[in-house]
Design a binder for these strands. Sequence first.
DNA 1: TAGCGATGCGAAACCCTTTTCGATACTTTC
DNA 2: GAAAGTATCGAAAAGGGTTTCGCATCGCTA
Lengths: 339, 339
Amino acid sequence: MANGSSRATTLTDVARLAGVSVATASKALNGRAGVRTETRERVVDVAKRLAFQPNALAKSLLAGRTGTVGLLTSDMEGRFSLPIMMGVEDAFGAARTSVFLCDARGDSIREQHHVDALLSRRVDGLIVVGSRTEPRPSLGRGLPVPVVYVYSPSDHPDDMSLVIDNVAGASLAIQHLVTGGRKRIAHIAGDPGYQATHDRARGAEAALDAAGLSLACGRIHYGSWTEAWGRGATRMLLADEPAVDAIFCGSDQIARGCLEVLRDQGREIPDDVAVIGFDNWEVLTVNARPELTSVDMRLEELGRRAAQRLYEAIDERMTPGVEMLHCQIVQRGSTIPLN
Amino acid sequence: MANGSSRATTLTDVARLAGVSVATASKALNGRAGVRTETRERVVDVAKRLAFQPNALAKSLLAGRTGTVGLLTSDMEGRFSLPIMMGVEDAFGAARTSVFLCDARGDSIREQHHVDALLSRRVDGLIVVGSRTEPRPSLGRGLPVPVVYVYSPSDHPDDMSLVIDNVAGASLAIQHLVTGGRKRIAHIAGDPGYQATHDRARGAEAALDAAGLSLACGRIHYGSWTEAWGRGATRMLLADEPAVDAIFCGSDQIARGCLEVLRDQGREIPDDVAVIGFDNWEVLTVNARPELTSVDMRLEELGRRAAQRLYEAIDERMTPGVEMLHCQIVQRGSTIPLN
DNA sequence: TAGCGATGCGAAACCCTTTTCGATACTTTC
DNA sequence: GAAAGTATCGAAAAGGGTTTCGCATCGCTA
């Protein structure tokens, strides 16, 4: 019984037991008109008794729609893809749409293979989730279903893409520090091999400029996305510019390293120096000492929006181009005071 | 073109263009016998030209198998579910099976709804991933497809479950410390509300016993899965038993807090005190100072095994009961020396 | 009582593919 | 030249559901 030995009950079974034709049974179960109430109840009763579940395959075959979408990710380890996937799953789950999960592991051959498999399963649409903000190759314009690119935009302008506004997010971080009264603000950036690094740097500079301030230490420090770099950069920073009163870090990992060195060197946080991170990765921010203020990219919301956009596109209401979602500050203990 | 306006090409289209019947076209494309080579080539050519993808729905409807499985998780945030899901996806991807992703968010109503949806889509099997080691309610024994429970076993002995051996994992950690010459070993445990906490504590005590040692400080410290608890517990530990030379922490987060306090108090790691964590959560272990040795639960392998077991069950080769997977040590800088 | 519309139900077509089996046409053998 | 055998192909059914359309049956009116 637990392994497919017993054929699943079909509409024919229900109809036979209810003493009606399959046509009538179908109408009865789907609330269609033209069925006497008494007959309808009899059919519904039998269906419930047999635990009848209509075969979605047969239904889809006829309807031309499957109520499924493909979720194509390039790396499931990435802490960016996952919240996005959660948002997508959440939005579709509510809409009775099932999600096919595929991980291409950054391999374009494997990706193509997955796309083929999904199309042969007649998904109603595709969502492609990237893990870097650099544009990625389009899946192509000839696909029979709509595609939404998330986090990594497509390199084709006619595709639909949904991305984070890193520039504005970084500006937000700086504004938060400025509002807190900080004057000597430094920026420890991440890996210069990433577009996101430069976007955040640009946003930070623009906001400083707008506030009439300039970078403490005169320059941005580029490195990597690690705590070790956060530690090293902070040491350099404190040597160069001991009067620094706020540090905007390109990621929470960097910020954790930064916090550690500041404490080692006897600086009070946030009184002497405020620190703000980026990503709002809870395991890092909440466990920090003090807890770390950070820029949240609202990735789950991004995923939900992607699902919504895909739905619109499935209903023939395409809106091509790149849409940006803005970040928000999540304030914690590492930034507040300074009287 | 990019939004389903053009009906996907069907086998009928191919057959018509190739000037043969659908039967012949099918045989030609599937390598069946009884088709002249020249005809076969013509059909294959046309199919390629039209980018024909056979409709998997129709095929499944006929075959009685869909080549899909449902992956039911209770929380996608959990750092345990994700590597398991990766392993599952990996194993099935290679087998041309597609995975439906469903997140019940710990809600049993939502879970039931997802199960119904998956069954109506005629999945060939289900994998249920939990996030705690406590047994979870069985989905029931009357399902038409096999089910494999992963990480959280089912509470019904006839179901198939695949879990981590936390007891053995903790023993491994202690053995690693003992082998390194440590004599005064303490254990900072996690949240006592978790079964895993007690399993690990039991494994640690057993291994100490086997090595003829007893717990430094005489007792296990229970708390929570946070860095803050790691810090607090370590301070207590050092006050009670300054001569401690190794600490086994119930999680990597606890270990991070532990490392921090040890360094604050001037202990050299690993020379004075060795520290070992549990989970091998890379963002925590690799970024630690020094890098943290940890017990790896091999979750991805667990996921792969689950996929494999499900396949066997689909082919009617069920093996009910709970199977345990053993952990392994990943050694890093926090444990090695002591001459 | 014949005629009418409304109502309830069932036969059949359709979605797309695979598979079986029967029908050709062609070759070989006696 | 007829019978037997082989190679190639197509018609049709099956899988499970939805929808259209035609057919009864019923109550009602003239």
